[in-house]
Design a protein around this nucleic acid. Structure first.
Length: 281
DNA sequence: CGCATTTCCTGGAGGC
DNA sequence: TGCCTCCAGGAAATGC
């Protein structure tokens, strides 16, 4: 499940490999992953030059010249791969983008099809069906702005998972960050004091940066653009480690259900929140 | 308003 | 070995 670090890893490689290249053959093999008109998609893109490749939230964005952009959302099982243009098509390949000056092409695969592809031309706002507004980027978020996010007062995990509140976090990095900060996922966000709020923001940034350094986490489907696995899963402290000893204190990791998601915690490092109404200030 | 539940979809896991 | 059922979950819609 590609979250911010996985998409960042993909985008950095694509920027390096594709910036400046001119689009050649466009093959749209499945139109239902495309949000918009398939004919317009292929005809607009042909001959366009890749200006840069970047990321916003969990989305990979190819910026073209003149002004326009293709947005990829990988959902659960989406992959962006760079392969030889004549390599056999893997199952569930929905889109291939060929380039004029290289034998390699960019392929979008997504077995479960929770992901998608969007084209936005000119100054069109990159929002649409399944592509809602997203909140601030966590890596550049200030402490003050983060306290504003927390003021919403929902369960902290549900809030961190909400892309409108803060962008790019999914199940893995929510659980890892909450554990690193010693915060229980059911804690009401507006009961976190300044110390815990700051600790959580630092934990989020540190966890994301380390994950990017290790090219993301491969639990099942995520791969780099070369098809390799990430390695940050080796350093997970709670995610998918039910019954294993906590790497901080040795207590057994527990799996709960929070905000409809499997949620892994160390019950010793992340004690249940105090009742908010007997809080002293 | 917040939170739970349902929907989309397929491959992989587990039961028998 | 093979068939069946269940289940994972990002995001949005629906229900309470």
């Amino acid at each position: 499940m590609p979250e911010l670090p996985e998409v960042e890893t993909i985008v950095r490689r694509l920027q390096h490999e594709l910036a400046g290249r001119v689009l050649g053959k466009v093959r749209l093999l499945r139109t239902d992953i495309l949000h918009g008109n398939p004919r317009r998609f292929a005809s607009w893109l042909t001959g366009k030059r890749v200006e840069r490749v970047h990321r916003r939230a969990k989305r990979a964005i190819l910026e073209f010249s003149p002004s326009g952009r293709v947005v990829f959302h990988l959902g659960m099982t989406g992959r962006l791969l760079l392969t030889e243009a004549d390599a056999p098509l893997e199952k569930h390949t929905h889109l291939t983008l060929g380039f004029a000056s290289t034998r390699r092409e960019l392929r979008f695969l997504d077995p479960r099809r929770f992901g998608g592809v969007w084209l936005f031309v000119g100054a069109e706002t990159p929002v649409g069906p399944r592509l809602g507004e997203v909140g601030p980027e966590p890596l550049t978020l200030t402490s003050k702005a983060f306290r504003g996010v927390l003021a919403h007062g929902r369960q902290i995990k549900a809030l961190l998972m909400d892309q409108r509140a803060i962008a790019g976090l999914g199940n893995i990095y929510c659980d890892e960050s909450l554990h690193a900060a010693g915060i229980h996922p059911l804690t009401p966000a507006d009961t976190l004091d300044a110390v815990h709020a700051e600790r959580l923001l630092v934990a989020i940034k540190t966890t994301l940066r380390q994950a990017i350094r290790h090219e993301g986490s491969t639990y099942m489907d995520y791969r780099t653009v070369d098809g390799r696995e990430g390695s940050f899963q080796r350093f997970h402290r709670v995610y998918q480690r039910e019954d294993l000893p906590c790497r901080t204190c040795g207590a057994a990791i527990v799996c709960l259900r929070v905000a409809g998601r499997s949620t892994f915690i160390c019950p010793s490092c992340q004690p249940k929140p105090n009742r908010p109404n007997i809080q002293t200030s």
